[in-house]
Design a protein around this nucleic acid. Sequence first.
DNA 1: TTGTATACATCGTATTCTTATGTATATTTG
DNA 2: CAAATATACATAAGAATACGATGTATACAA
Lengths: 123, 123
Amino acid sequence: MYIRCTNSFTMTYSPELLKGTLKTIVLKLLADNKKMYGYEITQKVKEMTRDKIQITEGALYPTLHALEADGLVTTEVEYIGKRVRKYYSLSPTGKAATREKLKELTNFMDTMIALLEIKPKMA
Amino acid sequence: MYIRCTNSFTMTYSPELLKGTLKTIVLKLLADNKKMYGYEITQKVKEMTRDKIQITEGALYPTLHALEADGLVTTEVEYIGKRVRKYYSLSPTGKAATREKLKELTNFMDTMIALLEIKPKMA
DNA sequence: TTGTATACATCGTATTCTTATGTATATTTG
DNA sequence: CAAATATACATAAGAATACGATGTATACAA
């Protein structure tokens, strides 16, 4: 019997907003970090967004598998003691896809900012 | 028999990106225009985004109905000749919800901009 | 030794779109 | 004037993508 800390984590945003951006987030992280494993990605996003975006396992792993199936990432398995760890790296196709995805999202945000007259804060 | 112009309209963005933002777009338009009808909303968004965002009927009408069911908008029917036209207006609850939705989306964008190091263009 | 953290994964469900279809009136154009 | 296009509502099947729960297992800290 395993007790899971369901933890009712406070999502700052409606979960729908994340839809369509998860792949982009994962690709961008891989572009910046050469290779990462799943759990590491969830923690990195959590840390970088100060808990505002929490990627769930049920969303992440299928996404990673899809990226692999599409040839955007390659994998290598490593053993930490007896525990398996699966590293993901961008393929050349994946690097190009990352640039495209980021461009597309930026463009979409431009449009939304103009349409909704909102003013996001930038660094 | 009715021939429909399926028109393979060129979506500038992956359709997934729109997910979760449609309600916000509709609410914001209603906040700015007092009352609007469905078809008018699709045309206004198309025009304001220079064809970049095209709201389909299959997405819009269920969304409007959901907003009504949630009490965020009220409706009144008008007849233009024999053709029916259904106007939507924000309720007080809807006005508050609009502010919340816009705040939430702005906040989400802040987070995405920081996370992905992207720089949207602002007016 | 018990709970928490690390680490993988899948499945059922909900939401929210797309695409296609249906119905009908009004207007423009060849 | 007939045909095409635009206006205007609506629903339904299907796909995509997330959530939440569940499952398995090792490592470490209290």
